[in-house]
């Protein structure tokens, strides 16, 4: 199958973020970056599908400044065949602008399957995948935790709050992947060497209008320091008393 995977460069969420002087971005000093968690699952999913189903091509696409080439190279070192950078001097905060640029690249690409992460772990909007599907007029299943493909049709499970549904749809299609799908493999040394020779094409992103601006970013209030009520089962009566009289949740 010809599979496209859209990947986003995101900072490591373990960081203790600081707000930049502008007030509208996080302080970039000392940040480490990787592809968004779910996008790693998406790359892995594509690779496994093509490994299992025989000859295919996995193309990874990322929109952003030249630094996104790091994440594209990582995907190539995992085993993707080629990469496309949709070059923009910054990533807009408007998911529709990103979806338009991705759709323009994907349109006419002859892909059987286009994979996204459920959501980018930094901005966490979960909009770009289904928007891109709509712009391309393709069937779409969001946040799938299983995906099976046979005879040009896909079957997937979507976890809903407190329930789940099994959906079926024809290819070509757009799918966004959730927890439950395979985790990204670590690139092998051989993979890293091979990635250096794989094609990485750079094209301008066709972004269009934007209607979302970041007014400010703030750190949420710190939680007030808690306390250790006691040790072992002996502490239970005091805990229950506090939940009743102080926290008023019991």
């Amino acid at each position: 199958m010809k599979i496209a995977v859209c990947i986003k460069r995101v900072p490591d969420m373990e960081t203790r973020f600081k707000i930049a002087a502008s007030g509208t971005a996080v302080d970039a000093a000392g940040l480490k970056y990787d592809m968004s968690d779910f996008d790693g699952y998406a790359v892995e999913t594509a690779l496994q599908l093509n490994e299992k189903q025989g000859p295919g091509e996995t193309v990874v696409i990322s929109l952003g400044p030249d630094v996104v080439q790091e994440q594209l190279r990582k995907a190539l070192s995992m085993g993707a065949d080629r990469a496309v950078q949709l070059k923009a001097d910054r990533v807009p905060a408007d998911g529709l602008a990103i979806a338009r640029a991705l759709a323009a690249e994907l349109q006419g690409g002859g892909y059987d399957l286009i994979l996204f992460g459920r959501q980018a772990v930094d901005s966490a909007n979960a909009t770009v995948g289904p928007m891109t599907a709509e712009l391309l007029g393709l069937p779409c299943a969001t946040a799938v935790s299983t995906l099976e493909i046979a005879n040009g049709r896909a079957t997937a499970r979507r976890d809903l709050e407190g329930a789940a549904e099994i959906v079926e749809f024809p290819l070509p299609a757009v799918v966004s992947v959730d927890e439950g799908m395979p985790r990204a493999r670590y690139p092998s040394l051989k993979g890293i060497m091979a990635a250096k020779k794989k094609p990485l094409e750079v094209k301008p992103a066709q972004l269009g209008d934007e209607h979302i601006t970041i007014e400010k970013l703030e750190l949420p209030p710190e939680r007030a320091a808690g306390r250790i009520v006691g040790e072992g089962a002996a502490a239970v009566p005091e805990l229950v008393r506090l939940l009743h009289t102080e926290a008023k949740v019991l």
Partner: peptide, 23 residues
């Protein structure tokens, strides 16, 4: 911003050509 709303709203936004704010 439930599983269903997150599935639906971006499609609606794209159909209408309107940007959206999520979650």
């Amino acid at each position: 911003a439930s599983a269903q709303g997150r599935d639906l709203a971006p499609r609606v936004a794209a159909k209408l050509g309107q940007s959206m704010a999520a979650d």
